[in-house]
Amino acid sequence: MKMCRPHRVPLPTQPCCTSAHAGAGRRVVTPLSPNDWKFICNGRNVSVSPSIGSWSLPCRSHYVIEHGRIRWADDWTDEQVERGRNADLHRKRSPE
């Protein structure tokens, strides 16, 4: 049973927005910047990619926002998390 549950999906009306959920007895807010995520908004709802993972929290929540709805994703192993973080760093350091 998942302990973390996202409770709202913000529309990206500013350069940075957040995704918030309650997990492990605390409120968790994840800043979503256009440098790290792609936003697609049709005026009524939003999709965000790639997935959002809270790997450093006890609940290790992992989800995707598609058309304003939360779709839970599988937990990742520590090795998958490390590969994902390395890929993110490589992408940020590489010229487009």
Score class of each variant (00 low, 15 high):
M1K: 04
K2D: 12
M3H: 15
M3R: 14
C4V: 01
C4E: 07
C4M: 11
P6M: 08
P6F: 01
P6H: 02
H7M: 05
H7V: 05
R8A: 15
R8T: 13
P10S: 12
P12I: 10
T13D: 15
T13V: 15
Q14S: 12
Q14M: 08
Q14W: 13
P15F: 00
C16A: 13
C17I: 15
T18H: 07
T18D: 06
S19E: 15
S19L: 05
A20H: 08
H21L: 12
H21I: 01
A22S: 11
A22P: 02
A22Q: 11
A22I: 13
G23Y: 03
A24R: 05
G25V: 11
G25T: 03
R26A: 12
R26P: 01
R27H: 14
V28I: 13
V29S: 13
P31F: 04
P31A: 01
S33Y: 02
S33T: 15
P34D: 09
N35M: 11
N35R: 13
N35A: 12
N35P: 01
W37S: 00
K38T: 12
F39M: 06
I40W: 12
C41W: 13
G43D: 01
R44V: 15
N45S: 08
N45Q: 05
N45E: 14
N45V: 04
V46G: 00
V46S: 08
V46T: 14
V46A: 10
V46Y: 00
S47F: 00
S47P: 10
S47L: 02
S47C: 03
S47I: 08
V48I: 14
V48T: 07
S49K: 07
P50R: 04
P50S: 14
P50V: 06
S51V: 02
S51L: 01
S51H: 08
S51M: 07
S51T: 10
I52Q: 03
I52W: 01
G53L: 14
G53V: 12
S54V: 11
S56F: 10
S56E: 15
L57S: 08
L57K: 07
L57G: 09
L57R: 14
P58R: 05
P58E: 07
P58S: 08
C59I: 03
C59F: 06
R60N: 13
R60P: 10
R60Q: 06
S61D: 09
H62P: 05
Y63G: 01
V64H: 14
V64S: 15
V64E: 15
H67A: 15
G68R: 03
G68N: 04
I70C: 08
W72T: 07
W72C: 01
A73C: 13
A73S: 11
D74T: 05
D74Q: 09
D75Y: 11
W76C: 07
W76V: 05
W76N: 02
W76G: 03
D78S: 06
Q80H: 02
Q80F: 10
Q80T: 03
V81C: 03
V81G: 02
V81N: 03
V81W: 04
R83V: 05
R83S: 10
R83L: 10
G84M: 00
R85N: 04
N86Q: 14
N86Y: 08
A87C: 04
A87L: 06
D88S: 09
D88N: 06
H90P: 01
H90N: 06
H90T: 09
R91Y: 06
K92R: 14
K92W: 06
R93A: 09
R93P: 02
S94F: 10
S94C: 06
S94R: 07
S94H: 10
P95Y: 07
P95K: 10
E96C: 11
